[in-house]
């Protein structure tokens, strides 16, 4: 298949597929892939039947806990994870928006204390689609189109 030619296969690890092209680097940031020593390959603006274009990330020799990977649902709600062992997909997983989001997203409110001092943000998700998250501190709601990674 075309996508396998574009981004080479991995023997063991995790493939994160169906990432919106605009969200690729946000996913990298959330999962801190820039700090990884493992082999990581990216593909962006790949053809997708469902999404038009998409991004894909392949991370060798690394598997994620649900809690860890669910964080990316904020920017890539339809992302799919393929768990690869010996070149075979042994498990497929979807991401779920967590009820609480801590320390990833910036509060949109410029007057919020989290934007003035070194305070880790905390949000409660009050709606999944579209995403609406309420700041634990200033109590204002950050909407999906305002989500910025801290």
């Amino acid at each position: 298949m075309l996508k396998q030619l574009n981004v080479s296969a991995i023997k063991d690890g995790t493939v994160i597929d169906h990432i919106p092209t605009k969200a690729l680097f946000k996913v990298v940031q959330i999962l801190k892939l820039d700090e990884f020593n493992n082999m990581v390959t990216f593909g962006n603006n790949l053809d997708s039947k469902v999404m038009g274009t998409k991004a894909i990330i392949k991370i060798a020799n690394r598997y994620f806990e649900d809690e860890e990977v669910n964080k990316i649902a904020l920017v890539a709600p339809n992302a799919k994870l393929n768990i690869i062992r010996n070149y075979e997909v042994v498990e497929k997983r979807v991401v779920q928006i967590p009820e609480q989001v801590n320390g990833i997203v910036r509060c949109f409110n410029p007057k919020c204390i989290t934007n003035a001092e070194n305070v880790s943000t905390k949000f409660q998700i009050i709606s999944d689609k579209p995403i609406e998250m309420k700041c634990y501190y200033c109590e204002k709601i950050t909407y999906e189109n305002e989500i910025k990674i801290k």
Partner: peptide, 26 residues
């Protein structure tokens, strides 16, 4: 305090009870 959410944050930091007498427009 003029910043919104400052009182909630202060309550987290403080060992004694905090009363919010106004945090910005919050």
């Amino acid at each position: 305090h003029p910043m919104e959410g400052s009182a909630r944050y202060a309550a987290e930091v403080s060992d004694v009870p905090v009363i919010n007498a106004g945090d910005g427009a919050n």
